[in-house]
Amino acid sequence: MGIKKEDTGKNTVDRYVLSKRMDRMFLELSNVYAFVMRFFKEAFLPPYEFREIIKQCYEVGVKSLPLISLTGFIIGIVFTNQSRPSLTEFGAASWLPSLISIAIVRALAPLVTAIIAAGRVSSNIGAELGSMKVTEQIDAMEVSATNPFKFLVVTRVLATTLMIPTLMMYTIFVALMGAYVNVNQNEQTSFITYFIQVFDAISFLDIFSSVIKSFVFGFTVGIVGCYKGYHSNKGTEGVGKAANSAVVTAMFLIFIEELLALQIITALR
């Protein structure tokens, strides 16, 4: 009898905890939805914060260049070097530039750029807005009748949405150069021959879909960073958590989006 009573009690508690957790999940989802909708509403309404947008584009774009350059170049070299043995086995070493070109343009460049941006930019935005939130700077903007969402969120999300496709094009270029260095060393292919093969292998749809994909990745990186920062909890550890959770969430979403994009593009092809 006693045991039965205990069981009932425990079950009720479990169900209570579960329902609280579900409530919180749905609350979070509706918050995310409202946040994204607010972005679209405020992005198109004047006044526009042009100066801040330029500044954020610089932060996202120019400041990511060193890391993107290094990573892109090395990926080009390594990927080429690792692909060579399998192709050589089938006597198809001359296809190397085509293979590299397709892999970089279709998959590697968009993904690498987005992941680097998630690590560098999303966390940065999360920490920056998070610390503005906990030190009441966002409240201060609000009570002085200015619009913090417009100044902080719209500018950053626009910057990432515009700059990540741009960076992606740059990553393609650097990775192809890295690959060329390796190909030139091993097969003594000339610069012209290499690039003719590279461009022959890819189509307009390849470039186009990668650019579209990068717009989505860019939007994701910006909006996740801003959402996490804007909704960070009080206290200094809230800032760290916002930054960390921005990176994890942004990367997770980027991989999901990559999978979806793969389905769509395959269907189009």
Binding site: E136, Q137, D139, A140, V143, S144, A145
Partner: peptide, 20 residues
């Protein structure tokens, strides 16, 4: 509310200066 807020000055506990 914005119009009303322009008539209210709020001095925050930690000043809340925009540090950038």
């Amino acid at each position: 509310l914005d119009r009303l807020r322009m008539k209210i000055g709020f001095s925050f506990q930690n000043s809340a200066l925009y540090d950038s």
